[in-house]
């Protein structure tokens, strides 16, 4: 088997009239933590949904373990999704189920295991994210950081091969951020997972990623190991990594010159 988990080839995708990706390519190696960084609203979540087969590309192909996701039948796609999982930005816990039942949900849906074994598995996953004591709480009773960890426990419930994290660091306090960073790395190593981390938090990403893609303006503007990226000569890459307000990527959304618009009012 090849060592490529996900292979994105010449992906073109638009939402309505708006072009999001224009012939973008990207590869995710098995067993690695691959990070995809880019400014907000550029289509990172969209990319994960494309990999998960929830959206279909306009052109190009997305291979998962060598098989084309967009060309799969519905049944094949559902089968394939059992070996991947996605941690949504909000956690997306099912609000009417307790933490325990949330984690048990994929196990109950896809296996016929006895309840006692399910209990063992769920407690094991909750222990891994440090939430064994919170198993009887409802999602509304969790803090943001706890909700995301509970969702992580649910995402690894069926031991997927690929796990995709959508903005796992956004809106977290420094401590839970540290916990999540540690968890992603540890899970990747301990369970032999392949991870895709989508984020715009430079420091955290650079600390855990094996390989980083920097996406902007509908394509990949820079790639490499964190070390290689820091040495990258492109001003765009440097601006993003250093977080400078205005530079190669303009701060302002495309608009007519300010002075002109002010004059129009007069």
């Amino acid at each position: 088997m090849s060592d490529l988990m996900v292979d994105i080839q010449n992906l073109t995708f638009s939402r309505g009239d708006r072009l999001i990706y224009d012939g973008m390519s990207m590869r995710v190696k098995r067993g690695q933590v691959t990070a995809i960084m880019g400014p907000s609203g550029i289509g990172k979540t969209t990319l994960l949904k494309l990999i998960g087969g929830q959206l279909k590309p306009d052109q190009g192909d997305i291979l998962f373990q060598g098989r084309s996701i967009p060309k799969m039948s519905r049944a094949e796609l559902y089968q394939t999704r059992k070996s991947m999982s996605m941690l949504f930005q909000s956690g997306a816990l099912f609000s009417e189920l307790s933490v325990f039942d949330n984690v048990a949900f994929p196990i109950r849906e896809h296996t016929k295991l006895p309840e006692s074994l399910i209990r063992t598995m769920v407690l094991m996953k909750l222990e891994a994210v440090g939430l064994r004591g919170a198993r009887d709480l409802m999602p509304s009773e969790l803090s943001g950081g706890m909700a995301r960890r509970a969702a992580l426990a649910r995402a690894i419930a069926l031991d997927p091969e690929l796990i995709m994290y959508d903005e796992p660091f956004a809106g977290q306090d420094p401590i839970s951020m540290g916990i999540v960073v540690k968890l992603i790395r540890e899970l990747n190593n301990a369970l032999g997972l392949t991870s895709i981390v989508v984020s715009h938090d430079v420091a955290e990403v650079m600390s855990i990623a094996d390989y980083v893609y920097l996406v902007a303006e509908k394509r990949v503007i820079g790639e490499g190991t964190p070390e290689q990226l820091r040495q990258h000569e492109s001003p765009l890459v440097q601006q993003f990594l250093k977080g400078e307000a205005d530079g190669a990527v303009p701060f302002h959304y495309k608009a007519a010159p300010y002075a002109d618009e002010l004059m129009e009012l007069l």
Binding site: G52, Q54, R81, K82, S85, S90, A92, F94, H110
Partner: peptide, 15 residues
């Protein structure tokens, strides 16, 4: 459920 991505996440869990 749609706004909080619960439906999407269910779909990604192959349900």
């Amino acid at each position: 459920m749609k706004a909080t991505e619960q439906l999407s996440s269910m779909e990604m869990m192959a349900v």
